[in-house]
Design a protein around this nucleic acid. Structure first.
Lengths: 246, 246
DNA sequence: CAGTGGTCTAGACCACTTC
DNA sequence: AAGTGGTCTAGACCACTGC
C-alpha cells in the first residue's frame, strides 16, 4: 500500500501527516476560510487509512481552531480570529530567574483575619471564613522588581495559616501545595504608588504593569493577588499563538 | 454492563467521564504531583471500555498539562506549573466594540518604501523587499483609544500595496485576507508619547499599555505593529488558564 | 431521510525505556 | 525481557441536522 511506503519514508504517524497536509492547505489559502473540506470518508480513502485516524487529525485541527466541525454540515475552514491571542505570564520568581538575576522575596506584612467585604470581592468568596493577607516585595538582584499584595482563603487552604511566608514566597508555596485549574488574569497600566516609588527610588510618574490574578479550583476560591511590576523594561511575551475559537 | 448503565444515566461519553474523574482526583490531591496513575490496561478494565477510549482521555489530559506520559515509565501527574497562563488579547476594534462604544479608525499616514534596517528587525525579514508603513489612531466614541504604527511586508502580501487603509483598518483587512499561524506578542508599560498626549488631551505622565505584535506564516513574516493603548481603564483579561508544560 | 461527525470496540503491531 | 504508551484497523451504532 502507498500508505505503508509513505510511513517507511517519512516515519511520521499518519494522523500527523494528514494534519500537517491540511494545515498547509489552509495556511496557503488553497482551502480558504469557509471552504468545506472533504468528509472523513473521503479523506480515509484518499489516505488509505481507517476513519479513526482521519478523525484524530481533524479533531486536533478543530481544537487548534483551524476547523469547525458540524454533524451533517461537514467540516469547514474557520475564519481567522486574530482578535484573540495567547500569552504566557510568568510569576515574578520565574521572570527574574529567567532574566538571569538572583531572586529574593521579602515579606513586609502577614495578617490573619475574618473575610472582609473587599476580600470577598477579590476572592469571589461570599461564604464567611478567614483569610491570610500578605504584603511583600520581589527583588531582582537587590533591585525592586514587584510589589505584591495577596489574600489566601483559609477555607480552601487551612494549612496556609501555619506557614511562615518570610521563608517561602507565597506564590511558590501555593504552587507546590495547592492544585488549581482555573484563574483569571487582568493586566493594566498604572502609575507607581508613592510607597513603592520611595522603596525603589523611582520617580512618581514611572509607568508600571499591574497584574491581578485570581485562582480557584473545583472546591472553591483559593487566592487573589495584585502585583505592581516596577521594571519598565519588564515585558510579558507570548511565544506562540494559535487561532482560538472558544 | 456497568458502563452501559452509566452511559444511559449521565449521557456523557465514556472518555469524558474518565477524563473528569481523573482531573478531579488530581485537583483534590488524591493523586498528587508525581503520582503514577494506573496504566491504560488497568483503567480499561476498571471502566469496562476499550483501550482507545482510555487513551483518548489520557491524551487529552496530557495535552492540558495534567499528566506526563512515558513509554514503559507509565503516566505520572505533573507538578503544577502556575508560572504560565493564557491570555486573550483583543484587537482595538474588538475591545472598543465589546465595551459598547462605536469604533472608528483614522489613518494618519501611509507610505510605501524599501525595507529599512529597522523594518527588517521589526518584521524579522532579512531579505530585501518593500513594506507598507501605516500610522493611525483607534477611536472609541470619539475618544482616542490607541495609537498604532504598523509595517506590512509586501513580499508576503503584495496586495497590501493596493489597499486604501483609510477605508479599511489594517488589522481588519489583514484578518480577512492573510492567514497566519504564528505570532509574538509583547506587553509593556510605557509613558504616553507627547504626540499622543496632545491628540488625546491627556497629561504627559499618563501610563499606557504598549502592545507589540509580530505575525508570521509558513511562507514568511507578514506584519509588525505597535499599539500604544491610552485608556488607563483598559484591561487585558484571561478567562481561563491551563497548566502548560512546553 | 440521508450524510456527517461522535463515539466505541476488540483486537493488533511496534517503539521505547526502564527494570 | 517485559511493561508501557503510540498508533492503527475495520468494522459498528448513534445523534444531529441540513436537504
Amino acid at each position: 500500500m502507498d500508505r505503508d511506503k509513505a510511513r517507511k519514508v517519512d516515519s511520521l504517524p499518519v494522523h500527523k501527516v494528514i494534519r500537517s497536509d491540511i494545515e498547509r492547505k489552509i495556511l496557503s489559502n488553497e482551502w480558504p476560510p469557509g471552504f468545506k473540506i472533504p468528509s472523513e470518508h473521503q479523506l480515509m480513502e484518499q489516505y488509505g487509512c481507517a476513519r479513526m485516524t482521519v478523525n484524530k487529525a481533524l479533531t486536533s485541527l478543530a481544537q487548534a481552531g483551524f476547523l469547525s466541525r458540524n454533524r451533517r454540515g461537514g467540516t469547514v475552514v474557520t475564519y481567522p480570529d486574530g482578535h484573540t491571542a495567547i500569552l504566557r505570564i510568568p510569576d515574578p520568581r520565574k521572570a527574574v530567574l529567567n532574566a538571569g538575576h538572583p531572586y529574593r522575596y521579602q515579606l513586609l506584612a502577614q495578617e490573619q483575619r475574618d473575610i472582609t467585604a473587599k476580600d470577598a470581592e477579590f476572592l469571589r468568596e461570599h461564604r464567611p471564613g478567614k483569610v491570610v493577607d500578605l504584603t511583600g516585595v520581589h527583588y531582582a538582584d537587590e533591585a525592586v522588581f514587584a510589589w505584591e499584595t495577596r489574600q489566601i482563603s483559609l477555607t480552601a487552604v487551612p494549612e496556609a495559616g501555619e506557614v511562615d511566608f518570610a521563608r517561602v514566597p507565597p506564590s511558590v508555596w501555593l504552587l507546590t501545595h495547592v492544585p488549581w485549574n482555573n484563574a483569571t488574569h487582568t493586566i493594566r497600566a498604572k502609575r507607581i504608588t508613592p510607597e513603592l516609588a520611595k522603596l525603589a527610588a523611582l520617580p512618581l510618574d514611572t509607568p508600571c504593569l499591574e497584574l491581578e490574578r485570581q485562582t480557584w479550583n473545583n472546591l472553591g476560591p483559593i487566592s487573589h493577588s495584585i502585583q505592581l511590576i516596577v521594571s519598565d523594561s519588564f515585558e510579558l511575551q507570548a511565544q506562540f499563538l494559535v487561532n482560538s475559537k472558544t
